[in-house]
């Protein structure tokens, strides 16, 4: 029975429904046991129906689902604590568009940079030959351009986007953090640097993508519209664009594989991977460990709110 049909049901209809469900389950069982089962079912069905009545809107339903999920997770790892949202739905969508486009671009682009590599021919033939693979590369490029536009609009128009952008600007603290982190790695200091919402590692990642997108989309557009470009520029400009596209692609691939994959997805804390890119949530345990300043900020904000709520 759908939620909408449940809107404003009378007490009797609910009871009738419960009785119907119960009697269908308990026919042909000895009375004492049947009573017990009946009571159990009654309780469960009532809870279920009441919960459904509570959830009126889609947003409420999502919130409810999140709570259920969190409950389940807490049961599994109770040391994780409360779950905080780190990446909102929009941001996760951007990340997904970007990584799918980048994977497509790498898989179709690298065989052209390294034609003698043993798997190159396999990756070209994966799409049914070079003619198709070049088309797939352009589809990937289109996705990346879309991502770039989406992200720029997100940065300008959304409150979260503006806040994140400002928090991502490199600060002197990042250099201090980097130095301290290295010292911490080497055992010169016992204290891990205390990061805010974005550590210097994540800032580096972010700006690497920024830089990479500008170079790759810029030079790629030159190569895509080569005959228009050559109307206005001499051929050597196209040669330079070609060289940049090819070299920056290698840099981006290496940055993703070495830097991003290790630091974000596969380091020993997270191995064999994290699903944060999918659900966007970070546990209390993790946020205290990796973004203590952000955690403190959130807590301070909460305290203020409850104070304001209490006084008001």
């Amino acid at each position: 029975m759908s939620v909408d049909e449940k809107k404003g049901p009378s007490r009797e209809t609910i009871d009738r429904e419960i009785e119907a469900a119960v009697s269908s389950e308990t026919t042909g069982i000895d009375p004492e046991q049947a009573d017990e089962i009946r009571e159990k079912i009654r309780r469960r069905v009532r809870a279920e129906i009441e919960r459904e009545i509570r959830i009126r809107t889609a947003a409420e339903r999502r919130e409810e689902e999140r709570k259920v999920r969190e409950e389940r997770r807490r049961e599994k790892h109770h040391e994780e604590g409360e779950m905080f949202q780190r990446f909102n739905r929009n941001f996760r969508f951007q990340h997904m568009v970007m990584f799918s486009s980048v994977i497509i671009l790498i898989v179709t682009g690298m065989p052209i940079k390294f034609p003698n590599f043993i798997l190159s021919r396999f990756f070209v033939n994966l799409w049914g030959g070079i003619n198709n693979s070049t088309i797939v590369h352009r589809i990937g490029a289109g996705m990346l351009i879309y991502f770039m536009v989406h992200h720029l609009l997100y940065t300008i128009l959304s409150r979260d986007g503006r806040r994140d952008f400002i928090l991502l600007i490199p600060m002197p603290k990042d250099i201090r953090d980097a130095v301290q982190n290295i010292r911490y790695f080497l055992g010169k200091t016992a204290d891990k640097p205390r990061f805010g919402r974005f550590s210097y590692i994540e800032k580096f990642d972010y700006w690497a993508v920024y830089w990479g997108c500008i170079i790759m989309i810029g030079s790629g557009a030159f190569l895509w519209g080569e005959s228009i470009v050559l109307k206005y520029f001499p051929k050597f400009v196209l040669d330079i664009a070609h060289e940049m596209h090819s070299d920056e692609a290698l840099l981006a691939t290496l940055a993703i594989v070495i830097w991003h994959f290790y630091n974000v997805h596969f380091n020993p804390d997270r191995f064999p991977g994290t699903l944060m890119w999918w659900h966007g949530e970070i546990s209390e345990h993790e946020i205290k460990e990796e973004h203590p300043l952000e955690y403190e900020e959130i807590m301070a904000k909460r305290a203020k709110q409850t104070e304001a709520g209490g006084s008001g």
């Binding site: 060289e243 070299d247 940055a255 070495i258 830097w259």
Partner: peptide, 24 residues
């Protein structure tokens, strides 16, 4: 032009990869 870009990237990529690998 192409030569300059290639030299720049060769140096840049080697440096960054070295940095990445050291950090990791």
């Amino acid at each position: 032009g192409v030569f300059a870009v290639r030299v720049f990237y060769t140096v840049f990529i080697s440096m960054l990869v070295l940095l990445f690998v050291c950090h990791v």
